[in-house]
């Protein structure tokens, strides 16, 4: 399943031109992502849709770090995404902080919630890990649901809608959807850069080693529990940031963002795009959301159609869309 293993890839002997081209793309993947982010709203002229592709893509990216690279399937990532969104919202509404501080609060919120969930969940594996994260995420849901004064309970938390934002002294019109897209894209670009660094670092090799063979990683001298916790916390940072961006974009945090379906969404997008691949989560998010938007124009049963597409993908392209493309072009 592992498709893009940074030094490993560079390590494997060079072969066809197609492979070499892909290796080149791999080496400059952040640059490539940047170019793509620049032209994406031109390809997809519905800017609001392009924005949620980015926020959900970033959410799936954070999930992928744990699922695709470390090999832990969490069913509770909504707590990190929604929790980040709420904490960003609470900072903006109740503390009246500037927008960027709200995003920072949401990101750190994701980190904190990941730490708290992680410290309990990392002791378990496989299905137990999935269940523990699911249960803890439900606790987080309940907590935010009950704290009506802070979160608005079932009505969700309304954020002050930002009309202009101040970026390093520059006043930007945040109502303009393209401007808004590029502001959010800047955060996504930074995230991709950071993820790329993490994957290419010694720690990036450690998490792949743990996925490949936990006992061996331990015998090599790696503290598997702590490595897992660190990966979970990093994942929480990406998901918290994604939630914050989503909150600012929608100007509301619906309580469903913490729900179990949101957790499932990360799994679906990641599998659809290709787990353990750099671009897979964004491909998955884009395909899922574009499909949802297209199909829901024609029928209210869009979930059925998306579900069938998902099943076909999982059955026939178990590597996911991006994962399969990589696989075929490398053969």
């Amino acid at each position: 399943m592992s498709a893009e293993l940074a030094t490993t890839r560079a390590d494997l002997a060079p072969s066809s031109t197609g492979t070499r081209l892909l290796d080149l793309a791999e080496r400059h993947r952040v640059l490539l992502a940047g170019l793509f982010l620049l032209v994406f709203p031109l390809v997809l002229p519905f800017h609001a849709l392009a924005i949620v592709v980015l926020t959900y893509g970033l959410y799936a990216l954070g999930f992928n770090l744990l699922f695709g690279y470390l090999g832990l399937l969490s069913f509770g990532h909504a707590a990190l995404f929604g929790g980040g969104a709420y904490l960003c919202g609470i900072a903006l509404v109740h503390a009246g902080v500037p927008w960027w501080l709200g995003i920072l609060a949401g990101t750190l919120g994701g980190v904190l919630i990941a730490f708290l969930i992680g410290i309990i969940a990392i002791r378990t594996r496989g299905i137990y890990f999935a269940m523990v994260t699911l249960a803890l995420a439900q606790c987080v849901y309940y907590l935010f649901y009950q704290a009506v004064d802070w979160t608005g309970g079932e009505n969700g938390l309304r954020l002050p809608s930002l009309t202009t934002i101040n970026v390093f002294g520059l006043q930007l019109n945040f109502v303009d959807s393209l401007t808004r897209y590029y502001v959010i894209a800047a955060f996504v670009f930074a995230s991709l850069f950071i993820l790329s660094r993490i994957l290419a670092s010694p720690f990036g090799a450690v998490i792949e080693g743990i996925r490949e063979n936990e006992a061996r990683a331990r015998a090599c001298g790696y503290d598997v529990s702590r490595s897992r916790l660190l990966a979970f916390v990093l994942s929480g940072g990406f998901c918290g940031l994604a939630g914050s961006l989503q909150a600012i974009h929608l100007a509301i945090v619906p309580v469903e963002m913490l729900g179990i379906e949101t957790s499932g969404l990360a799994v679906m997008m990641c599998l659809l795009g290709g787990m353990g691949t750099f671009f897979g989560p964004f491909v998955g998010a884009a395909v899922f959301l574009v499909l949802e938007n297209l199909v829901s124009v024609y029928t209210v049963h869009w979930q059925l159609v998306v579900g069938v597409v998902f099943i076909v993908c999982v059955l026939f392209f178990p590597r996911g869309i991006w994962g399969s493309i990589l696989h075929w072009s490398r053969r």
Partner: peptide, 24 residues
């Protein structure tokens, strides 16, 4: 580590005592 290269297998083992949580 079956899905990693032979060299990466030994390299991961070699870095283990020196770079534990270096993510950057």
């Amino acid at each position: 580590f079956p899905q990693l290269s032979v060299r990466e297998n030994v390299r991961i083992a070699a870095q283990a005592l020196k770079t534990r949580f270096d993510i950057w």
